[in-house]
Every structure is written in structure tokens, then in C-alpha cells.
Simulated assay, not measured.
Amino acid sequence: MAKQLPEEFYMLMEELQAVDFVLVDLTLYLDTHPNDVEAIRQYNHCAKERKRLKKKIESIYGPLQQYGNSYVGSPWNWDDAPWPWQL
């Protein structure tokens, strides 16, 4: 059974997933419309928002990514939060 975390964690993760979706969509769009300045502006805004959300989540609940993409605490806390498929 997965560990239950506060409602705030799930709300923040939902926000992060929504921003990730927009980033993927904008990436695909920009692959075919590389000169769309407004889309580039939106992409950069979302990238900044993603960084902010990731930092907030990790500062409270621990690392989200492995292989050097997130810092971990001591003791090793990589497995403290639920895995993505457990949300």
C-alpha cells in the first residue's frame, strides 16, 4: 500500500503534471513553428514555473528525479515519496 501524503502534495503534483503537459505540447508545436515568438515566450514561462514547482515539492517532500536531476537528503531519501504510478 502506498504511503498517504498531505493533500497539498497531490495538488502540487497535479500542477507540475499540467505544466509538463504544456511543455511537451509547446515543444511539439515549436518543432514545426520555430519562429513563433509568442510560443517561445509561453514555453520559457512554463519552464520557469516548472522549475519553481519542482523546487517547492522537493523542498517539502523529497526528490522527484534521479540520476543527478534532483538532490537527495541524508539519509538517502529517494524512496520516501510515492512513485509516479502510485499517484
Rank of each mutant, 00 (worst) to 15 (best):
T32Y: 00
K3I: 15
Q66C: 09
L12V: 08
L26F: 00
G62E: 04
Y71T: 12
D36N: 09
S70N: 06
E14F: 07
M11P: 03
L87K: 04
L64A: 03
K55C: 06
S70Y: 06
R52C: 02
S59P: 00
E38P: 02
P34Q: 04
A81L: 10
E15D: 15
K3D: 10
N44P: 08
N69R: 15
A39T: 08
Q86F: 11
L12S: 03
F9L: 09
H33D: 00
I60Y: 05
Q42S: 10
Y67I: 09
V72C: 13
Y61G: 00
N44G: 07
K55L: 09
Q66G: 06
V24Y: 06
E15L: 13
V22W: 06
L12G: 03
Q17M: 10
H33T: 00
V24Q: 09
L5R: 04
L23Q: 07
Y71P: 06
Y29V: 01
T27G: 12
K51D: 12
P75I: 01
P63Y: 03
V19W: 01
V24D: 10
P84A: 01
L64E: 06
D31M: 03
L28V: 08
Q66I: 12
Y10M: 03
K55V: 08
K56Y: 12
V24C: 03
Y67D: 13
